[in-house]
C-alpha cells in the first residue's frame, strides 16, 4: 500500500497536553464559565489571570471535579482523554493535581500517613510504595521547602497558618509527581519569603514532563515562576493570550482595559 493514511489524526499518539474546549459551567443556575478554550502542552506553565469573580477558580474546580459545579458544555481533554465524566480521584490518578486556594483541615490524619496513602493510590494493584522510595522523596521535598521533618507527624493542615497550608500543597505536589498542576491563587496570603519557597518548589519540578495552569490575580508570583504564556479570563472567557509581558502590563495598567475587551 503506497497511499497515505486518509485519517492520520486517529493513528497519532495522543498529544501530551490539557485541552479545554468550549467549556461551560455553572453554580446552581448561575453560569460562570461561558466557553473557555485553552491548550497547555506538557512542558509549559501558563498563567491564568483576570479580575476576581470572573471564573478563574471555577476553572480550577471544574478541572479537578468539584461536584459543586455543573458542567453545561464542552470538554477537558487530558492527553486526549475527556475527564469530565470521571471521579476526582480518577482524574488525580491521570496526573492532574490542584493546589487548593483554601486547603481543608483533616484532623487526626498525619501528613506522613496521608502522603503514603496518596502515593499508594497511584500504584498498580499489588505494588507497594517502598519505604526508601517514600522517605527519599520526602527528605528531598522537605529540603526544597525548608521544612523540618517533624512537620509530617502533624495532622493534615490542622491548625496550620495560611502560609503553612500553601507550603503543604507544594509538598504534596512534589511527592505525587503530577503531569499537570493547577495552582489556584497559591500566592494569596503569602509573605515574600513563603512565596519564594513555594516558587522554588514549583520550579524544581519544571521540565518537559510538567504542564499546568497558575491561577493568580497578581503579577507577584510570576516574578518567581515565570510563565510560558499568560491568559486573561474575563466574564467566563479567555479574552486575551500572550507572553509574560502581558502579566507585566496588567501589573502596571490594572484590569480596566481587559474588562473593555470582554464587552467589546
Amino acid at each position: 500500500m503506497t497511499s497515505p493514511d486518509p485519517q492520520p489524526k486517529t493513528t497519532q499518539p495522543s498529544p501530551h497536553q490539557i485541552e479545554i474546549r468550549d467549556l461551560h459551567a455553572s453554580v446552581g443556575d448561575l453560569p460562570i464559565l461561558k466557553g473557555i478554550n485553552l491548550i497547555v502542552p506538557r512542558g509549559e506553565l501558563h498563567a491564568v489571570m483576570g479580575p476576581n469573580g470572573n471564573g478563574k477558580s471555577t476553572l480550577a474546580k471544574v478541572i479537578v471535579g468539584d461536584p459543586e459545579y455543573t458542567v453545561t458544555g464542552g470538554e477537558v481533554l487530558v492527553d486526549g482523554v475527556n475527564i469530565l465524566e470521571m471521579e476526582p480521584d480518577e482524574r488525580a490518578r491521570l496526573g492532574v493535581f490542584l493546589a487548593f486556594q483554601y486547603p481543608v483541615e483533616i484532623p487526626g490524619v498525619t501528613i506522613a500517613n496521608f502522603l503514603r496513602l496518596a502515593m499508594q493510590a497511584r500504584k498498580a494493584e499489588g505494588e507497594e510504595v517502598s519505604f526508601t522510595e517514600f522517605y527519599g522523596k520526602l527528605l528531598a521535598a522537605l529540603k526544597t521547602l525548608e521544612w523540618d521533618e517533624s512537620i509530617v507527624e502533624r495532622y493534615l493542615n490542622a491548625g496550620f497558618s495560611g502560609g503553612e497550608k500553601k507550603r503543604n500543597e507544594i509538598l504534596q505536589m512534589l511527592m505525587l509527581d503530577p503531569s499537570y498542576i493547577i495552582m489556584d491563587e497559591t500566592d494569596s496570603g503569602l509573605d515574600v519569603d513563603a512565596l519564594k519557597i513555594v516558587a522554588r518548589g514549583v520550579n524544581s519540578m519544571r521540565g518537559p514532563g510538567l504542564g499546568g495552569l497558575i491561577i493568580t490575580h497578581y503579577q507577584r508570583l510570576l516574578d518567581y515562576i515565570v510563565p510560558d504564556k499568560v491568559h486573561i479570563i474575563v466574564d467566563g472567557k479567555v479574552v486575551q493570550s500572550g507572553g509574560p509581558e502581558l502579566a507585566q502590563k496588567l501589573d502596571t495598567e490594572g484590569y480596566d482595559w481587559v474588562k473593555e475587551l470582554a464587552t467589546a
Binding site: 479537578v64 471535579g65 481543608v104
Partner: peptide, 25 residues
Amino acid sequence: QILYLQSRGLTGDQAAGLIVRGFIE
C-alpha cells in the same frame, strides 16, 4: 474534605474512611 482527599487519588470510600480514622485517632 472528601474532594480534597479524592483530588489526591483516594477513592470516595477511602477518603471517608480516612476522615473517620482521623476522627477516632
